[in-house]
Structures are given as structure tokens and as C-alpha cells.
């Protein structure tokens, strides 16, 4: 999958996250989270897995997380990528 446009998915509500994607020449991941101390590594792992699943190798992706559960993160990331690829 190739990211062609800027796109976003999610909200800034508690227990949700906002995902922003943008075309880029390389892979750049930025993560902000209210639970970074406890789940920072886990969130990064999940985001990378979703990028791999979608076959996205180069993208600028920014996560603003407010304590979302893992399935929420996967759903928001994959939707943002789909929107960005259109």
C-alpha cells in the first residue's frame, strides 16, 4: 500500500486515539500517549505490526493516544492508512 494523501482517523477522547498519516520518503513514527510510561513500547509494536500488515514501508505517522486499547489502536491505524492510500 502506498500513502498518497494526508489522512486522519480517530478522536482525542479518553480511551481513544487520533492517527495522522502523510506521504513520506521513509518510515517515521511519532507517538504521544497519556500512558506512554506504561504502554509506550506496546503501542509502537502495534503500530509497526499494522504498517507491516498493510504493506506500508514509507509514511509519516503520528499517534495521539489517550489510553486506547490495542484493538482500537489497530482499527484506527489501519483506517487512517486506507484513507491515506486513496
Amino acid at each position: 500500500m502506498k500513502i498518497k494523501n494526508k489522512a486522519q482517523c480517530g478522536s482525542l477522547e479518553s480511551s481513544d486515539l487520533m492517527v495522522f498519516v502523510e506521504p513520506a520518503d521513509s518510515l517515521k513514527i511519532e507517538i504521544e500517549s497519556s500512558v506512554k510510561k506504561q504502554y509506550g513500547k506496546s503501542i509502537e509494536r502495534t503500530v509497526k505490526e499494522e504498517l507491516e500488515r498493510a504493506g506500508v514501508k514509507s509514511v509519516y505517522i503520528k499517534i495521539q493516544d489517550a489510553g486506547a486499547l490495542d484493538p482500537t489502536i489497530r482499527a484506527r491505524v489501519s483506517t487512517a492508512l486506507k484513507r491515506g492510500s486513496k
Binding site: 500512558v35 510510561k37 506504561q38 504502554y39 513500547k41 506496546s42 486499547l69 490495542d70
Partner: peptide, 9 residues
């Protein structure tokens, strides 16, 4: 099981 195990502070 739902949240995953948090890293300790």
C-alpha cells in the same frame, strides 16, 4: 487480558 500488562513506573 484486555489492557495488556503495563510496564511498571
Amino acid at each position: 487480558k484486555i489492557t495488556g500488562k503495563p510496564d511498571p513506573l
